[in-house]
């Protein structure tokens, strides 16, 4: 049986409509109008043990709502949801014992306590046995290099340090399922890499099943074999990133560095999309003209210094998917 089963999950939110102005505020007290927002509109997916799945979607798409239902914080209006054999909101306590959650925007550590004391308090809260706690802290602290900041109060940590501590905090009780909600938000490049590397290791070495909700496409590209793309409460894509790319765009991008500036390239199979000094960006369809053929033609006809082929940026593909859905 799958680790996580989600079937036709629906979640509505009722939001009070407010009229502007003081009079509107008064009216709102007496007679309130509500607007129903479909945060999740019959979504279904399942996740196997050991998977690392990326959840992507714009703000308000339904990512967090899904994660919150899986964690037992929210109760759906209808549909089925089973996490490790349990219905999360019916057995909240048993369910959360096996899951770890990191919210990038919010810490789970105690603001005024030194890092190590927060860990010790979590040990009490999760009733972690001494040996497990000792092994986990030793391993995680070394892995994320937290030795020097263990006695620093959380409020004095930098964002990158805090995020590393939060990752440790969410893993102290050896959860088999980990939810990461924007774990790299606001981090500098070095911290981002450290966090990414760590996520990958936890997944590969410990076999932790990870759901990664993020806006950071680099996170997705480096970490996730499978992505679930959500918008307006519906799943638009579930599968490998590559498949999405193929499905949405058969275009490739050829970037050419010319010897001269503002040089014109003219080719029937390639279209110039952008130009930047010596650099020219061309789009072509590999089904119409093979990459080798096109490169050959262009190098023969034009004085070029360098060239390379790449897939269109993932942001663009996703933006395209969103746009198509909005049109429907």
């Amino acid at each position: 049986m799958s680790y996580i089963i989600v079937e036709n999950l629906v979640k509505h939110f009722r939001i009070a409509k407010r009229k502007p102005g003081l009079l509107g505020a008064f009216k709102g007290v007496v007679h309130r109008k509500f607007k129903i927002i479909k945060a999740l509109d019959e979504i279904s997916f399942s996740i196997e043990p050991g998977e690392l799945v990326g959840f992507i979607g714009p703000n308000g798409a339904g990512k967090s709502t899904t994660v919150k239902i899986l964690a037992g914080i929210l109760i759906p209006n209808s549909g089925r949801c089973v996490v490790m054999g349990r219905i999360p909101w019916k057995e909240r306590v048993a369910n959360v014992r096996n899951i770890g959650v990191v919210f990038g925007q919010r810490t789970q550590l105690w603001w005024d306590l030194p890092v190590i004391e927060s860990f010790e308090l979590l040990k009490e809260i999760y009733r972690i046995p001494n040996t497990v706690y000792k092994n986990n802290t030793e391993e995680l602290i070394t892995l994320l290099n937290l030795m020097e900041i263990l006695n620093t109060p959380v409020r004095q940590l930098s964002l990158g340090q805090r995020m590393r501590c939060d990752l440790v905090a969410s893993l102290l009780h050896s959860p088999s399922l980990l939810f990461l909600d924007e774990p790299t938000i606001g981090l500098d490049a070095v911290s981002k890499l450290a966090v990414r590397d760590f996520i990958e290791r936890m997944n590969k070495e410990q076999g932790t099943t990870i759901i990664l909700a993020t806006h950071d496409m680099d996170d997705i590209e480096t970490l996730c074999k499978r992505i679930i793309l959500i918008n307006h409460g519906k799943i638009l894509h579930d599968g490998p990133l590559e498949k999405l790319r193929v499905a949405m765009s058969d275009e490739r991008q050829l970037i050419v560095d010319m010897i001269m500036e503002n040089y014109e390239i003219d080719d029937p199979d390639a279209k110039v999309v952008r130009r930047n000094g010596h650099r020219v960006y061309l789009r072509f369809n590999p089904n119409k003209v093979s990459t080798a053929e096109l490169i050959k033609r262009i190098t023969e006809r034009h004085p070029i210094r360098d060239l390379f082929v790449e897939n269109p940026p993932i942001e663009e593909i996703i933006a395209k998917v969103y746009l198509e859905q909005d049109k429907l």
Partner: peptide
């Protein structure tokens, strides 16, 4: 503030 989420994520009453 949404801080209540965190309490619900912990295996305690």
């Amino acid at each position: 503030s949404g801080d209540f989420d965190r309490l619900l994520l912990r295996p305690r009453s």
